[in-house]
């Protein structure tokens, strides 16, 4: 279970996965935030009203996927690095957006090793975009081109050299 392994269970993930109907329309955020802890920056970061206001600061975020534009502002704001952007609209690949706080900063076009929630290698992907939003505190949003079938599994990556 999550509190003994650090890895969320399938049922937990299913409960927070944006519906397929929404995922087919364009990029959307997936909040992998399962624990009641005092934290609310995602609510304040969202400019589209997609994160419902917290009545209790320990509430887990409630997301209106129809309002979410997949912009990624919440990804770089989240102190827990627990939000990811999924884009399944390209025909021959998917794009996953990840928070990134390591050095060196990857370059678009660079090949990376894709990792799952347990840090296991899934294969190769390619950096498609690296952005540092003006708001936030330095966390980068890195978008990776990945095989379509891996969109629910890729949650991290390793550069060919230089990263742990």
């Amino acid at each position: 279970m999550l509190k003994s392994t650090g890895v969320p269970e399938r049922e937990q993930l299913d409960a927070v996965t944006p519906p397929a109907s929404r995922r087919s329309k364009g990029p959307v955020a997936m909040f992998e935030c399962f624990e009641r802890i005092p934290c609310d920056p995602c609510y304040h970061a969202c400019k589209h009203g997609a994160v419902k206001e917290f009545l209790d600061i320990c509430d887990v975020p409630e997301v209106d996927f129809e309002r979410c534009t997949g912009c990624g502002l919440c990804v770089v704001a989240c102190p827990g690095l627990a939000i990811f952007i999924l884009d399944e609209t390209p025909s021959d690949h998917a794009v996953v957006g990840l928070p990134y706080e390591m050095l060196p900063v990857p370059e678009p076009g660079q090949e990376v090793t894709l990792l799952d929630r347990e840090g296991r290698e899934l294969g190769k992907g390619e950096v498609s975009q690296v952005s540092r939003p003006r708001v936030g505190s330095g966390t980068l949003l890195v978008k990776l081109k990945i095989p379509k079938e891996m969109v629910q599994d890729v949650r991290s990556f390793r550069l060919e050299r230089g990263t742990p």
Binding site: L2, F34, R158
Partner: peptide
């Protein structure tokens, strides 16, 4: 059990650190 926040633990696991 992991005493700290699960999100911190998940961050490490994604980077291949065993807990």
């Amino acid at each position: 059990y992991i005493g700290g926040y699960a999100v911190h633990a998940s961050k490490l696991r994604r980077l291949s650190v065993p807990i």
